[in-house]
């Protein structure tokens, strides 16, 4: 089985976000880039399949600027066999990205299983798995908490609200989007990190995968930082007053209840 794992490189979640001067994007100076955490579960799932059957191959694909090669190397260091880098602007939207990824996978013409995180940690749009599946004509199940593999059929447990789990059975080929808790992503051993430096990353252009700039459908503009948090305050008074004021604040100020 040939498994393709689509990954996205995103800013590390602890990084402070600054907006650039014309509010069209963030200031990328000093940003630490990592593999989107949900995509790591996808990589790990693919590697586990490879371990259970060494004839399975794992290819890590990412679409983006030159820097995403680092993310692909991380996947290779974890144990993936091969990498594919599709050169794409960092401002590409989910539609353009999905078309590029699907184009690359179609070109390979041998995919049985496509894995990726249920959403990217930077935009949280949660669209690319569904887009890719539609473009490839594959079945798709998202937010996978557990996948059971049998001949050509997968049973996927997916999470819905309130702790409830839906069980969906799907044939292969399929796109499955990973949720946190699907597995425990491994730490790359040093020999694998060293080996990864020599593994092949195939370079593809937009033309190679059949996309152009006009495939972009949406742009994010008008970036703003949220209003600066008020410094915390202690609520005084007797217990009854305190909880009253707290609930009012949570409801009207913070809007969290």
């Amino acid at each position: 089985m040939n498994i393709y794992v689509c990954i996205k490189q995103v800013p590390d979640t602890a990084t402070k976000i600054k907006i650039n001067s014309d509010r069209t994007w963030i200031d990328t100076n000093g940003i630490k880039w990592i593999v989107s955490p949900y995509d790591e579960f996808a990589i790990e799932e693919a590697l586990k399949l490879k371990e259970s059957d060494p004839s399975n191959t794992v290819t890590v694909i990412s679409a983006g600027p030159e820097r995403v090669k680092e993310a692909i190397r991380t996947g290779l260091a974890m144990g993936a066999d091969k990498g594919i880098h599709i050169e794409l602007s960092e401002m590409a939207d989910t539609a353009l990205t999905a078309k590029a990824l699907a184009g690359a996978i179609k070109k390979q013409n041998d995919a049985s299983l496509v894995l990726m995180g249920k959403e990217a940690a930077d935009d949280g749009l949660a669209q690319v798995p569904q887009f890719v599946s539609r473009l490839l004509g594959f079945s798709c199940v998202t937010v996978a908490l557990e996948i059971t593999y049998a001949a050509d059929v997968l049973t996927v447990k997916r999470e819905v609200e309130g702790g409830t789990i839906e069980k969906i059975q799907t044939p292969l080929p399929a796109v499955i989007a990973a949720q946190k808790g699907l597995n425990e992503p491994r730490y790359a051993s040093l020999p694998n990190i060293m080996k990864a430096k020599k593994k092949e990353i195939e370079m593809l252009t937009m033309a190679d995968v059949g996309v152009t700039d006009s495939d972009q459908m949406v742009r994010l503009v008008g970036f703003d930082l949220p209003p600066t948090k008020q410094p915390g305050r202690k609520i005084d008074g007797d217990v009854a007053t305190q909880v009253q004021e707290l609930v009012k604040a949570l409801k009207d100020e913070a809007k969290v209840v």
Binding site: D12, A14, K32, E184, R186, Y187, S189
Partner: peptide, 21 residues
């Protein structure tokens, strides 16, 4: 740690934090 990536689970967070931040 380096050859077998075998260590207490909570240590992975520490490594990742050190690598990134």
């Amino acid at each position: 740690v380096m050859m077998e990536a075998r260590f207490p689970l909570e240590v992975q967070t520490v490594f990742k934090n050190m690598e990134t931040n």
